[in-house]
Design a protein around this nucleic acid. Structure first.
Lengths: 165, 165
DNA sequence: CTGTGAGTTGAAGTGCACTTCAACTTAAGG
DNA sequence: CCTTAAGTTGAAGTGCACTTCAACTCACAG
């Protein structure tokens, strides 16, 4: 009746490699029962957790934060629709922000492509609020902008640099 | 008269750490002249290259691809505004696609939050075209979906899983 | 009962984009 | 000339999200 899934089945149904599932388990993102012979058996509810993990990654959330979010689920009972809705909603503003910054970048790029300043200079870069914080899903590779960096004096400016450089 | 920049100056004006600038040079993204004492001296035009690199990263392009793009600049002359505009424009569709997928993800999330299916299942994940390809700027961490993966039979479906799981 | 495909483990490797380090040299002001 | 901040190098380290590997065990159809 519990209808447990093997790691291969969970992998097939979720599209996540078995090695990744084991990795998620090590990090405490999902859990599995074991057979007498020590093989993993997943409750169907884990499928939902895996789905949530992958969605969250698309939103740009790190596994560590996802773990924290999942930890906030009730332990006693199987999470309800509302529980999942709450978690999903918690990413909403991040997603909005990410979209907003990308849209701004696109507009800046468009503006710059047309103008004499050539693009890139003050338009998209000279704008401190414009740092796409917490962008990348994985390594925090995208312009981490340490925040303690004193916003470089005059990073770039539009003046076409007399020599036309 | 060429008014060359030291690595510290370029770093300050671009907001990019000296170590990163050296790294970019190793990868062939930027170049520097040397003083008699072997110190780097950057032409002002390099500022523009660095700006382009950072913008491109925000768009989600890898350094390797950025290098390829920069390689397409004319070697003979200092790149013109049009040259830069062409490069910038080449990221445009990527940016559009990224924004489109994130917006779709947001809508799916919203839809799911309201509906009984709980979120996440068929809505956002069960959609093969929806993989945010080439998302992350750094490591290709985000659902690389090997393309040879046969789109898992029925990865997730909305049926609330009778038990209410 | 046996063969085979699927599963187990810990340790090490991968890829990207950097950063850190030690040991040393250069550039520039006083 | 001397000091000192800033620069140089190659090698190694970091963080994330995994993957790969070898050596072994388990589950189950025939």
């Amino acid at each position: 009746m519990p209808d447990l899934l093997t790691i291969g089945e969970l992998s097939a149904r979720s599209g996540v490699a078995p090695s990744a599932l084991r990795y998620y388990e090590r990090l405490g993102l999902i859990r599995a029962d074991r057979t007498g012979g020590n093989q993993r058996r997943y409750a169907r509810a884990e499928l939902r957790r895996v789905a949530f993990i992958r969605i969250s990654q698309q939103v740009g959330v790190s596994l560590d934060e996802i773990r924290a979010a999942l930890d906030s689920l009730p332990e006693a009972r199987t999470p309800s629709p509302q529980d999942w809705a709450r978690l999903s909603a918690s990413w909403r503003s991040r997603l909005d922000e990410r979209i907003r910054l990308l849209a701004k970048l696109r507009d800046d790029l468009d503006g710059c492509i047309g103008c004499g300043c050539l693009s890139l200079q003050r338009c998209a870069l000279n704008n401190p609020e414009d740092t796409l914080a917490g962008e990348g899903p994985g390594a925090r590779l995208v312009l981490p902008q340490p925040a303690d960096a004193p916003t470089p004096a005059g990073p770039f400016n539009c003046r076409p640099t007399p020599a036309g450089v």
